[in-house]
Nucleic acid binder design. Structure first.
Lengths: 219, 219
DNA sequence: ATCATTAACATAACAGCGTCAACAAAAGTC
DNA sequence: GACTTTTGTTGACGCTGTTATGTTAATGAT
């Protein structure tokens, strides 16, 4: 069997290198022409078909990029809670960091969520799934710790509660990034109000269903 | 000037007809190949370039479809508040209807928001902007009426408050539609908890900024 | 050192896309 | 009927993702 040596390491290294370039291109021209496989290759000084040696698909490359973006926002959240001891403060700072980071890097944030046609393929990436869960865990752990210390009520499980925060933060960021806010809305007031509402909602968590159920829910 | 007559009416009529077919195709195969202009034309029995007589762009067609989707969800919300007199009930029913409708028609909902590369163009469509505002107004008016009756506090303006609800509902629906929820999360509990949290947050609206501002905010 | 094998890369080609220009037909006005 | 405008078809361009085929270089075995 000729030519095995360190090829696995070299391959992974080159993969990272391609991903670096891809992320750079994506952040610069971000989404306008949405990262062409061919352009990316030529930008790297390679032929247009070269990246196929490292990624079976364009989707696989995009998913790897997506996972990177999740790792990045996870790091942002982790950085926001260092030095804070109160769970309430941690939760607020974490949510604020998520929102701030997403707003500051709209293309990267959009990469994480906006992709109608690639969802089926994205669902199959375990690398992406792990990155997502790890990012959310930052919030989940803060809530669990807060419950253990008696700061938060126990009648909601931490994973569900962290989803609640994710919903709020994601809703705000994605609407803002997509430029959906209606003129006349006081956006500056939105962030603190939302965070306050979520924390208040968590602390007065009412887990008894109060929503009218005309239809069966989809889950 | 030969041939002016009712051509304007006929044009609009044909436009609607094309949009009908486009919406049908989009809902059926939804996004997988994301609505090809050529396919749509041939599906209509026309040549691949025919729709260019009625839409200057693919973007214009997609934006018209988007506006339709907003009109649809507006109707769903309006239908959810008829017969209810209490503003709190109206608000809950409205939010629940929004969430339920979005979940029941993921492709249509995705069409409303998920489109990274078309955002710039979407921003320029006044038809879409009007549809969006009208949809949000359902919520804004309920809140304003509730404030007038003394059910809701006055220290937040109705438009901002309705955005808060929109943020929560959109965050929930879009994450669910995109299949982003982490395994183990109790989705069924999420809807009533979120709605409760938002209403609680609105009623105890704390408009004084409590969020750490390491960076200047973007808006 | 030579040869075979295999990886990396380049090139060509295919089908599909959005878009526009050029052209045929039809339908209205005069 | 002649003229003009609208509607529709066809061909073409440049782009895309992807695959197949060919080329080059490096390695292991001999």
């Amino acid at each position: 069997m000729p030519r095995p040596k360190f090829s696995d390491d070299l391959r992974a290294q080159k993969r990272e290198q391609i991903l670096d370039a891809a992320m750079a291109v994506f952040e610069k021209e971000g989404g306008e022409e949405a990262l062409s496989f061919r352009r990316l290759a030529t930008e790297l000084g390679l032929s247009y078909s070269a990246p196929y040696r490292y990624f079976v698909d364009k989707q696989e490359l995009v998913n790897a990029l997506r996972a990177r973006a999740f790792r990045w926002i996870e790091a942002e959240m982790r950085g926001a809670i260092v030095g804070l001891s109160e769970p309430e403060k941690q939760l607020e700072s974490l949510a604020a960091a998520y929102i701030r980071s997403g707003m500051a890097h709209p293309h990267r944030y959009a990469l994480m969520f906006f992709a109608l046609d690639q969802l089926e393929v994205a669902r199959r990436s375990i690398e992406l799934k792990a990155a997502k869960r790890d990012a959310l865990d930052v919030c989940t752990q803060v809530i669990a710790a807060g419950q253990a210390r008696g700061n938060f009520p126990l009648d909601i499980d931490p994973l569900t509660a962290s989803h609640l925060f994710w919903i709020g933060a994601h809703g705000l960021v994605s609407l803002q990034v997509a430029g959906q806010f209606v003129m006349g809305c006081d956006v500056k007031m939105l962030v603190p109000t939302l965070i306050h509402a979520l924390r208040t909602g968590l602390e007065h968590a009412d887990t008894s269903a109060k929503v009218p159920s005309k239809e069966k829910r989809h889950g």
